[in-house]
Design a protein around this nucleic acid. Structure first.
Length: 736
DNA sequence: CTTGCTCGTGTTTTT
DNA sequence: CACGAGCAAG
């Protein structure tokens, strides 16, 4: 019958053609998860079991949602416009726009991204005279988001100590401020949409009877509130089809609850748990390594990936002297892969944290290798773009104090800190917005008039024209034209006009009503929710750089995982938390399973971090990969626990001897300054950077030293055992 | 009011 | 190192 069913393997076929009922699909990496999801939707529609508008499909990223829509329209001759396929945040936004009155929101409410939220909290603390040392804005933001993700409003939060009571009070004040200004943050989108459905029976019944089939992608990433949201929608008799992989749960830090998978199975009495374990992506060695790594985790639902592809190449491992040298090696390997005919866009360079991209980018840039960085500062997060958006937000909603403050004096128009403070006091007393207060008089009145002028001048214009007018009238263009480093910023402002153009041109973005104000609101939502992955050069053949987190869901022929060091990956902050290490390991699992044919893993002995040199041990993840799968490209130095150094002198035979630098012959010599610094820190014959063995703590690396003679002490980083100060006269340290 | 400087502090991952 | 906050001079 349907051609799109052919080619599915038995479990995939079973999942796609399951009769309408609750189902949990445990889909391993590369097992055809997205294909199953989209084919399921196509099958439901083609067999007449559902109409396009009776399906709700939820993803976590815009990329995944877009992918699903693309594949769906390739399979079925239907118009996917108007189908409810999107991210949790996107769908909730849609829901709240449609029912803004019932949700208690202004029609043109604005969405705060995390940076906007942080700024709003800082502003709140200042207004309430709260000490931001005692209550760091970041912590407050985390606290508020955490409560919202658990579905708790301030009244519902239990506070047992003064500190928490104060934070709850701030939460309450923050809510009031947001409501006053007509803005909502990310978590608020979800909570408010949930409450709307919960409290408003007609609306709830409407959507419950409309969506008979609810499909969820990356179910392991759902938080408590998202799961409740799904349950609420499904409680009218719809069937919930959840696809997930507990081994790829890497968002616990932002509230994701893997336990939702077990809860779902129990609460919905799911008797259809289907496992997709055949991997179509990676060669055998890569898959074996991934399986071996994830086996070290205790809390798993259990699943073992297999492939009928050959074992392929071994995994290449490399030990670099420092981060720069690691980057240099990666560049060489990439050049040679390109020489073999591999496209650059099929190669990815992954790292644990964004800060690591600098060194790598530098090396790539010097080598003239085209590359593209994902994440980092995105288009809609750039300051000049945010300024422009702030003006647009003020047109849509002049009560948006956050937007007001951002641009009231940008470009500079003589409204300084003092005037703003007065304005804020007046606004607070009158309980109105800054814009309303500004209309009173003074220099600020000129700004309020500017906002009015913008609104009048853009009345009836199309969205791109509106943006164009705002850039001119606000003086942003003029400002950046005079600034010497303003060329890139000007280009970005032009790009914003383009973005508005393509936004309008894109199918489904313009509502049937077609009002400009509606367009503007939709565009601003788009800017907040989709911070702008569409960057220039998307189609170019460029090497892909990104964090492991943002690599989830992607695949490449060749993958480099860099910076595999204790403290970095696994990250030191995670090792302290009890469930943290398992999440790091899942992260490693995700990283490894991105590779189709070639996998390269590397670490550096020393690395610059926070402006100082850090000495890290190789990551434990090296040890968790069976040796037979690895091919070390560097001599086996002091690696692993039983390693024996090929060079150097036995400490016991000649105590007090200064050892030869551990720097291998193939590495470039360190700069003179480093040598000098090293010499200064010499103590008891051991050097900073020296690897040592301790009877109890195992292997470590000396990171600091002080004293001399019998008082000599060294500080040793034992990796997972921690960093310790040891007296040389007492501790037995053997160089390795 | 603006600009430019110093100082101190700090980063895991993101919809 | 790099950014933000805080302060002194134009």
């Amino acid at each position: 019958m349907s051609s799109f069913l052919s080619g599915l393997n038995p479990p995939q076929h079973a999942a796609v053609t399951l009769p309408p009922q609750h189902a949990l699909i445990l889909a391993g990496a590369g097992s055809g998860k997205t294909r199953v999801l989209t084919t399921r939707i196509a099958w439901l529609i083609q067999t007449g079991q559902a109409g396009p508008h009776g399906v709700l499909a939820v993803t976590f990223t815009n990329k995944a949602a877009k992918e699903m829509l693309t594949r769906l329209s390739a399979m079925l001759p239907i118009n996917t416009r108007g189908m409810w396929i999107g991210t949790f945040h996107g769908l909730c936004n849609r829901l709240l726009r449609a029912h803004h009155r019932d949700a208690g929101l202004p029609q043109l409410f604005q969405i705060l991204d995390s940076a906007d939220q942080l700024a709003a909290i800082k502003r709140l603390l200042k207004a309430l005279n709260v000490d931001d040392e005692k209550f760091p804005p970041r912590d407050i933001a985390n606290f508020i988001n955490g409560q919202k993700e658990a579905g708790l409003r301030p009244d519902a939060v239990e506070a047992w100590d003064d500190y928490t009571r104060k934070r709850v009070e701030l939460y309450r004040e923050y809510e009031a401020q947001c409501l006053r200004e007509g803005v909502v943050d990310f978590a608020e989108l979800l909570l408010r949409a949930y409450e709307l459905l919960q409290r408003n029976e007609p609306i709830r019944l409407h959507y419950q009877s409309r969506f008979r089939h609810i499909l969820v992608d990356e179910f392991q990433d759902t938080n408590v509130l998202q799961y409740r949201w799904l349950k609420l929608l499904a409680s009218g008799g719809a069937s919930l089809f959840c696809v997930g992989d507990d081994d790829q749960s890497i968002y616990a830090f932002r509230g994701a609850e893997v336990g939702n998978m077990r809860d779902f199975e129990r609460e919905f009495r799911v008797d259809n748990v289907i496992r997709l374990e055949q991997n179509y992506r990676s060669h055998g060695n890569i898959l074996d390594a991934a399986n071996a790594i994830i086996k070290h985790n205790a809390a798993r639902l259990g699943k073992n990936l297999w492939t009928d592809a050959g074992s392929g190449e071994p995994i290449r491992a490399y030990e670099a002297f420092n981060d720069t040298e690691e980057a240099r090696w990666i560049v060489e390997e990439i050049k040679s892969l390109a020489g073999e005919g591999l496209a650059r866009r099929e190669m990815a360079l992954l790292y644990r944290s964004n800060a690591q991209s600098r060194v790598l980018e530098h090396a790539l840039f010097s080598a003239g290798l085209p590359y593209r960085v994902y994440g980092g500062l995105r288009f809609f997060e750039r300051q000049e773009v945010k300024h422009a958006l702030a003006y647009l937000r003020l047109i849509a909603n002049p009560d948006d104090d956050g937007a007001f403050l951002r641009v009231v004096n940008f470009p500079a128009r003589g409204i300084g800190a003092r005037s703003i403070e007065q304005l804020q006091d007046a606004a607070k007393n009158a309980k109105v917005s800054l814009y309303a207060t500004a209309q009173g008089g003074g220099k600020a009145a000129a700004f309020a008039a500017l906002v009015d002028k913008l609104r009048a001048a853009t009345e009836g214009l199309t969205l791109p024209e509106t943006v164009e007018q705002v850039l001119e009238i606000s003086g942003l263009r003029a400002h950046y034209r005079t600034e010497k480093e303003g060329q890139d910023r000007l280009a970005n402002l032009d790009e914003l006009v383009n973005a508005a153009e393509s936004f309008v041109a894109e199918e489904g973005n313009v509502d049937a009503e077609g009002e400009v104000s509606g367009d503007l609101a939709a565009f601003l939502s788009h800017a907040s929710l989709e911070a702008g992955e569409h960057q220039a050069g998307e189609g170019d053949d460029a090497l892909q750089l990104m964090t492991v987190h943002s690599a989830k869901g992607l695949e490449f022929d060749a993958v480099f995982i860099s910076g595999l060091e204790e403290g970095l990956f696994p990250h030191e902050n995670s090792v302290r938390e009890d469930k943290g290490l398992e999440e790091e390991r899942r992260l490693m699992y995700v990283a490894v399973t991105r590779a189709r044919k070639r996998l390269y893993i590397s670490h550096a002995q020393t690395r610059m971090l926070h402006g100082q040199t850090r000495y890290n041990l190789p990551s434990r993840f090296f040890d968790e990969i069976p040796e037979g799968l690895l091919k070390w490209l560097t001599p086996k130095l002091a690696r692993g626990h039983a390693a024996v150094s090929p060079r150097g002198t036995s400490f016991g035979a000649s105590p007090g001897l200064t050892f030869a630098p551990r720097r291998p012959s193939w590495a470039a010599p360190p700069p003179a300054a480093v040598v000098r610094r090293t010499a200064e820190k010499e103590a008891g014959g051991l050097r900073i950077g020296q690897n040592v063995q301790h009877a109890k703590f195992g292997q470590g690396v000396i990171v600091n030293a002080e004293g001399a003679g019998s008082d000599a002490r060294v500080q040793v980083n034992f990796g997972r055992e921690g960093v310790k100060w040891l007296a040389l006269s007492v501790a037995k340290l053997t160089p390795v």
